[in-house]
């Protein structure tokens, strides 16, 4: 297997192609009617409406910032009566090497009942949430929103539970800890499990004590 034959390696400033029939994707830039590479990595070509989209995939996380419309993974830091402060850990599929600060305002937590909402009943410090980046309004803080059904809390630990035991969602606003059976209020994200067959498997594998739990 000759990797030079199968994958094209690019470095910044390398001319990739003309603009005819091609469009520039992530990791490339356009100048004087040509597309150039902006990162060092592997060239990726995609067909997109009869136009070939060129992008350069870097092997390490590129130094780019979350922009408006991205789905980010964040960890909640401070919960306030007006807003929720969190730290952005990943943008889309890439893990960020340096975390950035984000804010979820009270009005952006969910679609309905915006007035009477209490952020403490939706998030708690330590929760991992999926959120969408809103257009920038403040200099160094990203404004996030969890309004969509697919956004919200993914992983949370109940108060008093041993660390590492994440709660299981019961409905869209409640989660329960499997060990202490405590129920807590959260704004739960509708996440489709990756391997849907696992949900149907008769046996669960518990990471903690490596014993087997029989499903009820």
């Amino acid at each position: 297997m000759d990797e030079e034959g199968t994958e094209k390696i690019c470095i910044p400033g390398m001319r990739l192609s003309t603009l005819q029939g091609h469009s520039s994707g992530q990791g490339t830039y356009v100048k004087d009617g040509y597309i150039f590479a902006a990162l060092s990595g592997i060239l990726k070509t995609e067909e997109d409406n009869k136009v070939i989209k060129l992008s350069v995939v870097s092997l390490i996380t590129p130094s780019i910032l979350p922009k408006a419309g991205d789905i980010v993974t964040a960890k909640v830091n401070v919960v306030n009566s007006r807003q929720v402060q969190c730290v952005i850990l990943c943008t889309g599929q890439t893990i960020l090497t340096r975390p950035y600060k984000g804010i979820i305002k009270k009005e952006d937590i969910q679609l309905k009942y915006k007035d009477g909402i209490d952020p403490y009943k939706c998030f708690r410090p330590g929760d991992i949430v999926l959120a969408k980046v809103l257009p920038t309004t403040e200099l160094h803080w990203y404004h996030l929103s969890t309004e969509d059904n697919e956004l919200g809390v993914i992983i949370a630990t109940a108060e008093g539970s041993p660390p590492g035991v994440s709660m299981i969602p019961i409905n869209w606003s409640m989660m329960q800890c499997p060990k202490t059976l405590v129920k807590e209020l959260r704004k739960v994200a509708r996440v489709v499990p990756e391997n849907i067959n696992e949900a149907l498997l008769p046996l669960h594998f518990n990471q903690d004590d490596e014993s087997l739990l029989l499903n009820k």
Binding site: I11, P12, G13, G27, Y29, K31, F36, A38, L39, S40, G41, S58, L59, I60, T61, P62, S63, I64
Partner: peptide, 11 residues
Amino acid sequence: LANAAVPMFDV
């Protein structure tokens, strides 16, 4: 900068 995957116009 190229090693850090900072988007650049050229080397």
